[in-house]
Design a protein around this nucleic acid. Structure first.
Length: 278
DNA sequence: TCAATAGGTCACCTACATGG
DNA sequence: CCATGTAGGTGACCTATTGA
């Protein structure tokens, strides 16, 4: 139960992920492949296909096996090197993935590697990613993001399925405070949550809270609350036959305001949405 | 660097009205 | 019952700034 709560919070945060790809390729490295004790400001994926080598991430040494996907996260001390002539052949990419100003892999506290279940699929995704990276098309950058997000999603899904190694990052007091605030918003989303209430919760000045929240989540607290309400409304519209007035009340809004806000959010009115989805 | 404040702007919210 | 237009007040948020 506790896990599903933290997952739903993760799900809400993931809605704000922004990714950018800077390199993608397949490389068979040699003995000279080595870099020690550096802290990059971008993430890397290493999808090992063959050979051997060593990664050190945050002080922990790994000997990746073919079929494993590793993330070398931004802002974490790391090293890599070849251990013998039979060095890695791997798909790799450099990218940033941020929620607000926070690196995704820092916020979610997922492990640094997964055992890939569908190796064909992931190889295909990397091939696609490299294709889009090399493409001259003006819209290729969109396809790069789309494919990269698919790989990130595959990584997170597998990491989260493997519950034992999934522990939301909580050592950071900023993230602890954020969790407190997000939990409060979830519990009180049917009321009119104010920034003052949230600020009191973590003993911040409202202005400071707003700035912190935006840095961590990417949108303001009120926008976050609003989106949560709209998501709830969408669920109620499709899963129940409650009247639109009732649903508006359930999310703490007056009907006339609810209709307009919903349309702004979903692109169509509540009744149109219900009709379309049923 | 962090926490807080002042002042200004503008989006949000409410209330009322109207029409389908 | 629901959607939407208008208008005015409120408060969330931004920028600049200060003090510890």
């Amino acid at each position: 139960m506790k896990t599903s709560k933290s997952l739903s919070r993760l799900r809400n945060l993931l809605a704000n992920v922004q990714v950018h790809l800077s390199f993608a390729n397949y490389t068979k490295v040699n003995m000279r492949w080595r870099q020690m004790n550096f802290v990059p400001d971008f993430n890397r994926f290493y999808y090992i296909r063959e050979g051997e080598g060593c990664l050190v991430i945050d002080g922990v040494t790994y000997y990746p096996k073919p079929g494993q996907l590793f993330v070398m996260p931004a802002g974490v001390k790391q090293s890599y090197y070849a251990t013998n002539e039979n060095a890695f052949g791997k798909y790799w990419c450099h990218f940033t993935a941020k929620i607000g100003d926070t690196d995704l892999f820092r916020l979610t506290g997922v492990p640094y590697s997964i055992d890939v279940e569908d190796e064909e699929r992931l190889s295909g995704l990397f091939e696609k990613l490299i294709g889009h990276y090399e493409s001259e098309s003006f819209s290729a950058v969109l396809l790069q993001k789309a494919t990269l997000l698919e790989i990130v999603s595959l990584f997170l899904e597998t990491a989260v399925l493997n519950r034992e190694s999934f522990r939301p990052a909580e050592e950071d007091s900023g993230i602890q405070n954020l969790n407190k605030v997000l939990k409060y918003i979830e519990l009180h989303q049917h009321e009119n949550v104010t920034v003052q209430q949230l600020a009191d919760l973590v003993h911040f000045h409202p202005n400071y809270l707003i700035r912190q929240f935006r840095e961590l989540v990417g949108i303001s607290p009120i926008q976050y609350v609003q989106r949560l309400k709209m998501d709830t409304a969408k669920t109620l519209l499709t899963a129940t036959d409650e009247s639109i007035s009732d649903i508006a009340r359930r999310v703490g809004m007056e009907l006339y305001y609810f209709s307009r806000t919903f349309k702004k959010h979903a692109g169509l009115s509540p009744s149109e949405y219900r009709q379309l989805m049923s």
